[in-house]
Design a protein around this nucleic acid. Structure first.
Lengths: 110, 110
DNA sequence: ATATTGTACAACCAAATGGTTGTAGATCAG
DNA sequence: CTGATCTACAACCATTTGGTTGTACAATAT
């Protein structure tokens, strides 16, 4: 029943992190290059504090890391989190393909 | 700036749908087989209405479809939604790989 | 030394989320 | 017909989410 509680809440956080346009944009940007928190904040029509919170959500989900450099905080992409999400969705995809194959077999028999 | 509003809110809903353990379990199950809403409800330690809401969230996100059969409502997986999520994450993955390749090049030069 | 910049964090607010119970309408079984 | 089952939906509740403003402090620039 309760298969793997830790992994599940980890995935909850991970997909929750992806469930916001601004956060997906941040992930895309810090995957390509380097941004400070205020550098990111300048990109969006919302307060610095709001962007700070988005970054915190991404950090909790292991999708980005922060590293202090002088007075700035540099945000970088964290490949691990993304791979974890991809793995789960790929599992579903595999199941779907297997079912499709079974269906094809059944149709071939009948 | 506002790249593609419709696609973005669609992705918001999609990832939000995945951001819950019960909903991920429902997706997995209806991908494998057929379940009525009450059949699903029997599986979880929550009310029928709660499961009904989870199914509604998945339906809005285009991850499942419902089809009336007699007095039952049969829930089935909808491959489209899953593929959409996979596509986006694969985009990120590609970007990441490209960046990793660039880094390797730079290291080779220097 | 002072002003500016970048960050952190608290307090607050409206809206959404994830759950509940209760009521009511269809459909099926006896 | 009557009762049981399956679904839909409303009302309610506590918590979380996504945003705001304000305060404080560290690091840089003038």
């Amino acid at each position: 029943m309760v298969v793997d509680q830790l992994r599940e809440t980890e995935l909850d956080r991970l997909f929750q992190a992806f469930a916001d346009t601004t956060r997906r944009d941040i992930v895309r940007r810090v995957t390509v290059g380097e941004y400070s928190v205020s550098g990111l904040a300048a990109l969006y029509a919302m307060s610095f504090a709001a962007v700070q919170k988005h970054v915190a959500v991404l950090e909790r989900a292991s999708l980005v890391t922060k590293e202090k450099r002088g007075r700035e905080q540099i945000v970088r992409g964290n490949h691990e989190g993304l791979q974890k999400a991809l793995r789960l969705l790929d599992e579903y995809e595999q199941i779907w393909r297997q079912r499709a194959a079974r269906m094809a077999d059944i149709l071939a028999e009948g």
